[in-house]
Write a protein that binds this DNA or RNA. Structure first.
Lengths: 222, 222
DNA sequence: ACAAAAGTGTTCTCGATACACCCATGC
DNA sequence: GCATGGGTGTATCGAGAACACTTTTGT
């Protein structure tokens, strides 16, 4: 069976960089490729766009098929189409990135992948295709948007402590922040409210828990 | 002649929103479509990606073919792939935007277009496809990047007056700015230097002319 | 002379930064 | 009792906003 067109067409894929925070380190989800090209290499989850499929739908579908992750928030990152990025043929990929709360996911290897695994962003294996470029850009965007959006909240769940939230900011920025200034900053955003409970059990004083005041519209400040 | 593949593929195009400032108004370049679909409608210049063609190369080529414009600076905007955006088939378009200096271009109608013309961004005809959405996003991006990049300089040429530069900012932001604050701001950027000449001839006092201190690396502040 | 645009400083406000100590809890 | 993280206020600095008059040129 084959599909024929009057003019040649490049193939189109989506690739997704899923970030989370594990063990206080920024991490990304990769799959081990089971087929050519780059068999045995690690790569971003992703795959070909199906007929009449929206790009974001494709990204969500591939993510579920290859890793079992569903229902995440996605943002389009950039479209990569340099000839030669796939050695077989001209493939244009629309890259997305996703943020998931820390330690909240059960992975399963899917049909297209031998294995799916989290890697620390600063300790990656050699990646297939131009996926390292995609990750470099994604990481850059993540850091930039931290300052003018509320994307950090995507890494945590309701009933978080301000200490946890602060550590998300610190991990993405790669530097320590002043605790009092940070708390002032968070309160000035006006997005969080006291959940009325405390987090018991860890070392140290019990921490007040917070939740999002408007869990829905949670984007772009400034 | 036809081109056949083992799996179906969407078509891929690039579209380009070229902005300039004419008569103190933000304007965009459109072409009148000569063929179906949307024959007779106005649309963004753009067209299909050729085999092994880089996306940006495609955008530049289509822009030249359809409007005669060459060598402009491009930035990738967003990739649109909603099924149904082209009534014939699934077409994914990678949208770019370009900024050209005011009153600097001679247009010519190209092979694929009956006509190419500048339109005021606030006074557009009904556009083909989802090109109005693309323009809405482009305009939004333009306004946002004005504040954290030096993109405004793309609208002017060397030997500009600070009044001219200020009017670029005012036109994109849609509001008047204070002259003294604006001059302080520009000097703090450290990107412009006195060209040593004055602009004679207009009404009012002759204005000092400036040029870019580093015409090359002209991007991203903050 | 007058219309039109160029050019020039100071004050205020607000957000960002720097900085140190006591408190509650688990072990 | 001690180690660990939670919680709190004040002073300083710098960028951005508000604000009005004089100068030069063309007509």
């Amino acid at each position: 069976m084959s599909f024929c067109y009057a003019y040649p067409r490049p193939a189109v894929t989506t690739d997704i960089a899923v970030f989370t925070i594990r063990n206080q380190r920024l991490s990304v989800l990769l799959i081990e490729r089971g087929g050519d090209p780059f068999c045995g290499y690690w790569a971003l989850p992703g795959g070909f766009v199906e007929p009449d499929e929206a790009l974001e739908t494709c990204a969500l579908r591939e993510l579920e098929e290859e890793t079992g992750i569903t229902g995440v928030w996605l943002e389009q990152l950039y479209t990569f189409g340099t000839p030669g990025r796939d050695p077989r043929q001209h493939v244009i990929t629309v890259a997305y990135f996703a943020l998931v709360p820390m330690e909240s996911l059960v992975l399963k290897a899917g049909s297209d992948a031998n294995d799916a695994q989290w890697f620390y962003i600063d300790d990656l294996p050699k990646l297939a295709f131009d996926h390292q470029d995609i990750l470099d850009l994604a990481r850059h965007r993540l850091r930039a948007k931290l300052d003018y959006s509320t994307l950090a909240f995507r890494f945590i769940r309701d009933n978080f402590t301000l200490g946890e939230l602060q550590s998300v900011y610190e991990i993405i920025r790669g530097e320590a922040l002043d605790k009092r200034n940070f708390r002032k900053f968070v309160k000035s955003l006006g997005l969080v409210e006291d959940a009325g409970y405390f987090k018991q059990g860890g070392p140290g004083k019990a921490a007040r828990l917070y939740r999002l005041a408007c869990p829905d519209q949670l984007y772009y400040t400034r």
